[in-house]
Amino acid sequence: MDLETPPPDLYGRPRADRFFARLTAFGDWYSPALGSPGLRRSPRRAEARPVPPLYLVVVSHRVVAEDVVELRLADPSGGMLPGWQPGARIVLTLPSGRERHYSLCGDPADRHAYRVAVRRIADGGGGSVEIHDELHVGVRLRVRRPRNGFAFCGEEKVLFLAGGIGITPLLPMARAAQHAGVDWHLVHTGRTAAALPFTTELTALDPARVTVRTDDEHGLPDAAELLAHAPRGAAAYVCGPAPMLLAVQRALPASPAVSLHFERFGAAPILDGRPFRIRVGDETLTVPADRSALDVAREVRPELPYSCQQGFCGTCVLKVAAGTPEHRDRRLTAEQRAAGLLLPCVSRAAEGETLVLEV
């Protein structure tokens, strides 16, 4: 993608980019990949004692917007849950074995239940469809404890920008900002009002501080226009599709905001990829410059596990039997890379190289 040319809109297909380095740095510290053999927190830290997962039950499953359901998860015995701060996320192990990351969107003061919201993606990896169709009240799930790679710093002036389901980590931040007396404003963008969850809950905090902007009523949003809502000298917190993040990053220097915190859902844009090949079983497949090895491998092995698609969680780790990879994650240690481990969601190879993957 030409870095001087803005994306056609803020809702294009996400592709992965380098800006995720800040989030993966937090991930090295906060999010051990439980259940992934050989992975540890950081090459500079001692091996951590494993943290036991939670086993929670779905106590509520309700539609909160078009194609969006809200789940509330609680301890089956009614016990208190571990605390968390705005921006935290949990990892759900679904009945199928899929693992998926979701931001907590409830109130941190509520220690009796965790709340997440999930948009149905019919042509995605199957996790959201499974949640919508199968996670009824009473289903029990393995849940990795809250970890935070998108912490709210509580600056005096704040702008929150949410793209669609990206409202989930920002809603608790807005609530915290309101309680702390921060000068804040939140803009929630989406295609239609019916597709935006939690609008009533947001405006109840302070209707003067919330702007709901839909494409069908206002046209496609422009990053400069969105950032114009920022108080002078504000910190901007953004969560949404990759093109939205890229556009905001480009427009930030000319805006009233002075700093940027962000989280994306799904893979970030691949900006400097080159085609290479992977061998999976008996098949040799070409990985185009703008796709990940994980995407291509799953065309012939759809059962391959994955979760964050951003080199953060370690769920998709594979062994390289032959070939020289270009590691682009910040999860694996030097020792793990030397042993042949690879995170195919982000790592690549030189043009013309073939990686033989053990699956």
Rank of each mutant, 00 (worst) to 15 (best):
R98Q: 14
G181L: 08
L56A: 05
L227Q: 03
D67K: 14
R144E: 15
R337C: 14
A321L: 10
A297H: 04
A25G: 12
P76T: 03
A257L: 06
R291H: 03
I270D: 00
E99M: 07
H101M: 15
R72N: 09
E353R: 13
P7A: 01
R111S: 04
V51T: 14
L161V: 15
P231R: 09
L3C: 08
G149N: 14
P14R: 05
G97L: 07
A224P: 05
P172S: 10
A251F: 01
L246Q: 15
S31M: 14
R291G: 00
R144L: 15
D183H: 14
L332S: 07
P8K: 04
T93M: 05
V346A: 01
L252I: 10
L285P: 07
H327D: 05
G12D: 15
K319N: 14
G125T: 04
S103R: 11
L355A: 04
Y306H: 14
R330H: 15
L245P: 06
S347Y: 03
G106I: 03
S307E: 09
R15C: 13
G106A: 08
F262V: 09
P231M: 10
G164K: 03
A16G: 12
P344R: 03
L341Q: 13
P146Q: 01
R40G: 04
G97T: 12
S31N: 06
D17E: 14
P43E: 04
A267M: 09
R279H: 07
A117S: 10
R298A: 01
G87R: 06
Q309V: 15
W29T: 12
R298P: 00
M80I: 14
G38H: 11
T203P: 05
H261R: 11
